[in-house]
Design a binder for these strands. Sequence first.
DNA 1: TCTTGTTATTGACACTGCGTCAATAGACAC
DNA 2: GTGTCTATTGACGCAGTGTCAATAACAAGA
Lengths: 219, 219
Amino acid sequence: MKDGDELSEDRGPRRRRRPEEAERTILAAGRAFLEEHPFREMTVEGVMVRTGLSRPAFYAYFKDRYDLVTRLIEGVGGLLFALDWRWLSGTAEGDGDRARTVLVEALRAGSQTFVEYGPVLRAISDAAGYDARVEEVYRGGLIERLIAAVAERIARDVDAGVTPGDTDPGQTARALVLMTERYLLDAFGRTGSHPSRAEQAAIFDTLEGIWVRTLYGPE
Amino acid sequence: MKDGDELSEDRGPRRRRRPEEAERTILAAGRAFLEEHPFREMTVEGVMVRTGLSRPAFYAYFKDRYDLVTRLIEGVGGLLFALDWRWLSGTAEGDGDRARTVLVEALRAGSQTFVEYGPVLRAISDAAGYDARVEEVYRGGLIERLIAAVAERIARDVDAGVTPGDTDPGQTARALVLMTERYLLDAFGRTGSHPSRAEQAAIFDTLEGIWVRTLYGPE
DNA sequence: TCTTGTTATTGACACTGCGTCAATAGACAC
DNA sequence: GTGTCTATTGACGCAGTGTCAATAACAAGA
């Protein structure tokens, strides 16, 4: 670990902030930290040197580093599932082409969130392996709810006849959602590099290809 | 954490073993531990109480707990990629039906490994989030090599005309392999429960459906 | 300007788990 | 027996955590 790496601000005399400001400062420091380092390197000290506050101050605002990461997600949470709600809630009614188009838009919107918040999303995914509470919130909460919603939609598409009848909606939704999460995390969750525009396009196209061919067949 | 949980054997006087036996004992204890607890709860002490040896003895055989998990995988490693090598190395030559059949067999064989070694595989996957060395061995080694092999095969299928021409072999291989890993880990990596036979069948069918529809179209 | 109360902030502490090493004591060879 | 080799361990220092009583910044009132 470098030295001048941390902009420790050489904090002068004690400064007193409004709780709300302190909390925002810590959240920002946490986010900044995760843009540069993977979650496994995150320590309370490592975050707090960026704030000009002492380590114990952290515990006045957050229970522990998992709590910090969880709250970071809240700022992204809604967006994550800003994958176009139209596809999830809509009905195909025999119109496969329309379903296809809307699905593609939904996937693009969802993917965009990963492009912007990749490292933070990666961090919560990693943190889920560290802490049972984070796992519950992330996997048990966000992911499971998304799977359930997608499963509903697939079930309707099967009933409408636009998706093959031998499709198991629940399992297929699970596989597709987990694929999407893992694949986008792999592509955009690295702390260092970002994929080029061309690579991004290839990634989106691949994802869309798999969803569409699985649910609506070729063409 | 319970009390009588650990069968601590109340180890009597010091006992001296052959190094090889001690190592096997520790590996077995590690495996047993992971059948009952997730990786995040694994401590060196927690493993060693099951062996009748002291905690420091661990370090005579393993560098740290990540080293233990890595070596546990070696015992599974080959099997993991016992997904039928015929599909990976073969060529379709316009015979889509044959490719389909062999792929399905390959997936079943690979999935079977997850059924048997689920918790251990889950552990190394989690450990990859904890430790850069494990990440390198698992993601950078096993997974990337598998992706590369699958990509080769897909490229050949595209050339042979059995897979749609707009398929990006590298990205598609990545998405499919990551999906398979994540989905099977989700299904068989839990420490507590195992899916029923019927659920297993649904999981396999779903996986196969996605691979086949993506690469070879419907029917 | 000088109190005074509130409370954000922190130094210091105890704790867990890690990784190391010199010292201890089985087991085998002779 | 006796000696040698080395598997084993008690004890240590370290990193990072989470807590708490003591401190001091700021706001408000006289």
